[in-house]
């Protein structure tokens, strides 16, 4: 039984190491930023995921210390990796991409990085109508305004 766990932990550790390395290698190898963005967001999540699973299994099986911190870290990384990638892509589009020549054009309105949200006012109103009260929002806003100079 111990041997099974040992093999499993070792395999997970190796998977983690290999995918971490591949992700970083892709970042060096690929020619332009948008394709470089693919490498770390994908390969690295499995790399860290493998490492975290290995450590969870290792401490549970050999140190009889069940630790769920790893679960929290991997949850956090899986939630934040797409957000980071999205933000980096938006920053790249904003700085270096010509929306007319390089991007496909959606029907109607342009991409959000270059145009203000279309019906922000109507949406705000809808939210206000069935949601909370304007007074609370106003109060929150005032609180913010009071806090910001400090």
């Amino acid at each position: 039984m111990n041997l099974v766990f040992e093999i499993l932990v070792a395999v997970l550790i190796i998977i983690g190491g290999v995918f971490t390395l591949i992700g970083s290698w892709g970042m060096v190898k690929l020619p332009e930023l948008m394709s470089r963005l693919h490498a770390p967001t994908k390969a690295t999540t499995l790399g860290v995921g493998g490492a975290l699973l290995a450590s969870m299994l290792y401490f549970a099986a050999f140190k009889s210390h069940l630790s769920l911190h790893e679960l929290l870290i991997s949850m956090f990384l899986f939630l934040t990796a797409p957000i980071t990638a999205h933000f980096l892509a938006k920053a790249h589009i904003h700085r270096h991409v010509d929306p007319v020549r390089e991007l496909p054009r959606p029907d109607g309105h342009g991409w959000g990085t270059f145009e203000a949200p279309h019906d922000a006012a109507a949406e705000m109103k809808a939210v206000m109508d069935d949601g909370p009260d304007p007074a609370a929002a106003e109060k929150a806003h005032n609180d913010d305004a009071g806090r910001s100079p400090r």
């Binding site: 999205h86 109607g108 309105h109 959000g112 990085t113 949200p117």
Partner: peptide, 11 residues
């Protein structure tokens, strides 16, 4: 990788 949303949120 998803990069952007159109201004009216339909693409």
């Amino acid at each position: 990788v998803s990069c952007d949303l159109s201004a009216d949120g339909r693409y």
